[in-house]
Each structure stands twice: as structure tokens, then as C-alpha cells.
Computed example of a mutant assay.
Amino acid sequence: MTIINIKTEITGNIWKIEAQVGQKLAEGDTIMILESMKMEIPVSATEDGVLVEILAEEGATVTEGTVVARIEA
């Protein structure tokens, strides 16, 4: 098994976490939603796997490239 780091593509605030640790995800499934400049930007799974860790919480501010979750693929 391989651990995949899920990173943000933009600076913003974590508006809502939609997935739970232990959940099976398909590539493209939304893990959380960032809010930036009044836009909602999904942070999605980059490949199929199981969500093993969430590294941020709702309301937190993150910068571009921050690792916010890990998937075991």
C-alpha cells in the first residue's frame, strides 16, 4: 500500500470536511471544501483508496500546497 498526500491547490479557509477517516474514496471524490474569495473549491481524492488521516480542521486557514489529508491507495 502507498500513502498519498492530498494537498490544497489554493490558499483559503477550510469551510467543510465532507469525508471521514476510514471512508473508501474514488478518484475525484470530495474530501473537503475550501472557501477562497467567496468561491467554494473542492479538495478531492487524487486516486482510489481509503482516507487514513485528516490533517486540518474546519475553519483553519491553509496555504497553497498544504497537505490536508492522506489516502492509502
Rank of each mutant, 00 (worst) to 15 (best):
G28N: 08
K7M: 05
M39E: 08
L25P: 11
S36T: 11
D29C: 13
E18F: 03
K7D: 15
Q23T: 08
V50Q: 12
V21P: 05
A45N: 10
D48Q: 00
E9V: 01
E35V: 14
S36R: 05
I14E: 10
G28L: 04
T11C: 12
I33Q: 03
L34A: 02
S36E: 01
G22M: 00
E18M: 07
I33P: 10
I6W: 04
K7R: 03
M37H: 03
T30E: 13
I6P: 00
N13F: 12
K16G: 01
K16E: 15
D48F: 14
E9I: 06
E53H: 12
N5W: 14
A45R: 00
G28P: 03
K7Y: 12
K16Y: 11
K7Q: 15
E47I: 03
W15I: 05
D48V: 12
M32V: 00
T30R: 15
E47L: 14
I33E: 02
A19I: 11
K24A: 14
I31W: 10
S36P: 05
N5S: 15
L34Q: 08
V21E: 09
G49F: 00
G49D: 06
A19Q: 07
G12T: 13
V50H: 06
A45F: 10
E35C: 09
E9M: 13
E40K: 15
K38E: 03
N5Q: 10
I17T: 05
M32H: 05
I54K: 06
I17K: 02
D29R: 07
G22E: 01
E40H: 08
P42D: 03
A19G: 11
K24C: 04
P42K: 15
Q23D: 06
I10D: 08
W15E: 14
W15G: 02
I54Q: 05
K16H: 13
Q23G: 13
N5D: 09
K24E: 13
I41D: 02
